[in-house]
Simulated scan of single mutants.
Amino acid sequence: MLVLAAGDEFVGTELLVGAVRAEVAEAEFARLSSRWPVEPFGPVGGVQEASGTEEQVIEALGGAEVAVTQMAPFTKTVFAAAPRLRMVSVSRGGPVNVDLTAATEAGVAVTFAPGRNAAAAAEFAVGLILAAMRRIPTASAELLGGQWRGDYYAYANAGLELEGSTVGLVGYGAIGSRVARVLLAFGAHVLVADPFADPARIAADGAELVELDELLRRSPVVSLHARLTEQTRHLVDAEKLALLPEGAVLVNSARGGLLDYAPLAGMLRSGRLGALALDVYDVEPPPADWALRDAPNVIATPHLAGCSRQTAERAARIVAAEVGRYARGEKLLNVANPDVLR
């Protein structure tokens, strides 16, 4: 079986090769590497968040039966040029770099890697919450810049503890539920808003399920963990933001589209919002004239929440396991286009 391993500088080509070889010892490999994330991804041939070109993928595929990748574009043009291809296994939480309609028409199963970065993203979210509540990045930058802010010890400026605080989590999937368990261990009271979550599971975990409006009214700290769909776009808009308690801390490390960014700078300057921690944005990267660039009490990181070495290794193992199932004739677990199996 010939396998195309199309890696990048995060989930590397040789990492993919090693993982697949551990599952299918007799596999042979073609190789392709892209420069992501050193070079940004973008739309390619009708698919989103892809790295490299259709021509590069077609040339590398040759007669490959299986492809494993994170970012390579698998478009209608690619599928038309690869008649022997039968499976594409994508090492991401969603195969946005694959044209699923074209894959199904071509008889190609497309699998993905749910939960690959859940641990990394949950840990990062908790880090942002702590950093925002205690002003850790701001205080560090000021000290390194030669300013000793003793006034931070004044009661009016003092930070907040997680123990005894109410934290609202919008979304309770693989990441949100992990965040909840960590916060509960800190002694926080956790509210959850998620119409698709299992109420019994939330209660068993020690959290409280409420409607979104109630969560926003009751939570001095709010962290977003919902999936981005047409229904959840701008889920937290200006009207919802107005429900937050005075001086609340807001964290978004999920998807930029969940949050309406327009009111945030004004809310921070007025003190209506106490701190804001972001890892995702409505436009990535934010433009030079971004309104939040000079707003007070902002923490901003460049979409790093899911980035850890363990995430890359886990992603490679997940896609390789699907290749192993395919090679053994077993049922594939995480198929994005299940119609192709019928």
Rank of each mutant, 00 (worst) to 15 (best):
L2Y: 03
V3W: 10
A5C: 15
E9H: 14
F10P: 01
V11D: 10
G12C: 04
E14P: 10
V17E: 15
V20A: 14
A22H: 05
E23T: 03
A25W: 04
F29Y: 08
L32Y: 14
R35S: 15
W36K: 01
V38G: 08
E39Y: 00
P40N: 13
F41Y: 10
G42Y: 05
P43A: 15
P43Y: 03
Q48G: 00
Q48S: 12
G52M: 05
Q56N: 08
I58G: 02
L61H: 12
L61K: 11
G62L: 06
A64K: 13
V66W: 12
T69K: 00
T69C: 15
P73I: 08
A80H: 10
A81I: 00
A81C: 03
L85R: 06
S89P: 03
V90H: 07
G93L: 09
G94V: 06
T101F: 01
A106G: 14
A109D: 10
T111H: 13
F112D: 02
N117R: 05
A119W: 08
V126R: 02
V126S: 01
V126M: 05
L128W: 08
P137R: 04
P137E: 02
T138D: 14
S140A: 11
E142T: 05
Y153R: 14
A154L: 15
A154W: 12
V167T: 13
G171F: 07
G173A: 10
A174I: 01
I175H: 10
V179L: 04
A180W: 00
L184M: 08
A185K: 04
F186V: 02
A188D: 06
H189A: 04
V192H: 01
D194F: 11
D194R: 13
P195A: 01
F196H: 15
R201M: 07
R201V: 15
A204V: 01
G206A: 14
L209C: 04
E211W: 07
E211S: 12
R217I: 09
R217D: 09
S219K: 06
S219P: 13
P220T: 08
P220M: 09
S223I: 03
L224E: 12
H225S: 12
H225T: 07
R227Y: 05
L228T: 06
A238G: 11
L244S: 05
P245N: 07
A248K: 09
A248W: 11
V249G: 05
V251K: 11
V251M: 09
G257A: 06
D260K: 06
Y261M: 14
P263K: 02
L264Y: 00
M267F: 00
L268N: 05
G271H: 08
G271Y: 04
L273G: 14
G274E: 05
L276F: 09
L276A: 11
L278E: 09
D279R: 13
V280P: 14
V283K: 13
P285S: 02
P287D: 09
A291K: 12
L292H: 09
P302V: 06
P302S: 02
L304D: 00
C307K: 12
S308K: 12
R309V: 13
T311E: 10
E313P: 00
V319F: 03
A320Y: 07
E322K: 11
G324C: 03
R328L: 06
A336R: 09
A336I: 08
L341A: 09
